[in-house]
């Protein structure tokens, strides 16, 4: 007869305290989540609360001590300011037009990258380059390309006889051209991400389904409209959502290229908030402008996510 087995030892205790944590799913999960939650709380949550607080106070960059509560006067002031109203429309125009172009070009690029051809890797690399380059440096490159004197675009066009010497466009100095220029750069910058996301969506459509449509006799257009597009819509919405939020909230392209000019024709809410709050010193006013977009964006996100879930397919 063998001796009776000793009572099973607690594996966690045997492995020491480190092992105890690794075996405890409840705590391990919390510990691993903690850095991310702390990070978001410190860099997103806290500034958001601070902005909410500032927007109802009379704080300035020079304020000492606690600022006083002024109710909604910062918001009233902003709404009464024609530059603010203009910035709201500019923001919407900038974001919507940029994303419309990005989605169309991104879909075309993704569809062509799905096919096999020689040098595909090189084209992929070229398309991804704007995304890996630092945005501010890339935008400074564009600043030179749009420069009123050194613009490589103008010089090249003049060489080929497209522009005459006195008829050079001033890319960043004429209202319509300035908006077109910042949109061009925004498209250049967001296109890689959108293309990669759309390409992912396209490749996730089973090959069988495409082939079934081919055998069923569908034309190229019908295959795209009735099969490809509906099946990649959830993913396309993700790309759209990301791009819209980037365009609504980001200021770097406009800050580097035009600083909102000429005559506020490219002024968007993000730049206006920065100029009012930081450059102008009116922290309360800047916070109110920045917060204006929060409910709009939140509604946007909820709507798109709900729509994405509805069109999701198994």
């Amino acid at each position: 007869m063998k001796p009776a087995a000793s009572p099973p030892t607690d594996p966690a205790r045997r492995a020491g305290s480190g092992g105890a944590l690794a075996d405890n799913e409840k705590w391990l999960g919390r510990v691993m989540m903690a850095p991310a939650i702390l990070y978001i709380a410190a860099l997103v949550g806290l500034p958001l609360l601070l902005a909410l607080y500032y927007s109802v106070s009379n704080v300035t960059v020079g304020s000492a001590g606690w600022p006083s509560y002024v109710g909604l006067s910062n918001f009233r002031h902003a709404f009464g300011n024609p530059t603010f109203i203009r910035a709201v429309w500019n923001t919407i125009f900038f974001a919507v037009v940029s994303m419309a172009i990005v989605m169309v070009l991104g879909t075309i690029l993704a569809l062509s990258l799905l096919k096999d051809f020689r040098g595909k890797w090189f084209v992929r690399l070229l398309i991804l380059l704007p995304w890996v380059a630092p945005i501010s440096l890339g935008t400074i490159g564009w600043l030179w390309m749009f420069d009123s004197v050194y613009s490589v675009i103008n010089w090249t066009a003049q060489y080929f006889g497209i522009f005459g010497k006195r008829t050079w466009p001033v890319w960043l100095g004429q209202p319509t051209l300035a908006m077109a220029s910042v949109i061009t750069v925004q498209v250049w910058r967001l296109l890689p991400l959108a293309t990669v996301i759309l390409l992912g969506g396209l490749s996730s459509i089973p090959k069988d389904i495409q082939e079934a449509a081919l055998v069923d006799g569908a034309s190229v257009l019908r295959r795209y409209v009735q099969i490809t597009e509906p099946l990649m819509r959830p993913i396309a919405l993700v790309a759209l959502l990301f791009g819209l939020i980037f365009s609504f909230t980001d200021m770097i392209v406009i800050y580097v290229l035009t600083r909102g000019g000429p005559f506020d024709t490219t002024q968007v809410l993000a730049t206006l908030a920065f100029f009012t709050g930081i450059d102008g010193g009116d922290l309360g006013g800047g916070a109110a402008i920045a917060l204006f977009l929060l409910p709009v964006l939140a509604a946007c996100v909820i709507l798109i996510l709900r729509f994405a879930r509805k069109t999701e397919v198994t």
Partner: peptide
């Protein structure tokens, strides 16, 4: 092309249009 061949095909996965 397949559509000019007057054929119908059933795939192993059935390849139904999920949407």
């Amino acid at each position: 092309p397949p559509r000019a061949r007057k054929i119908a095909m059933v795939f192993q996965s059935y390849a139904l249009y999920p949407h």
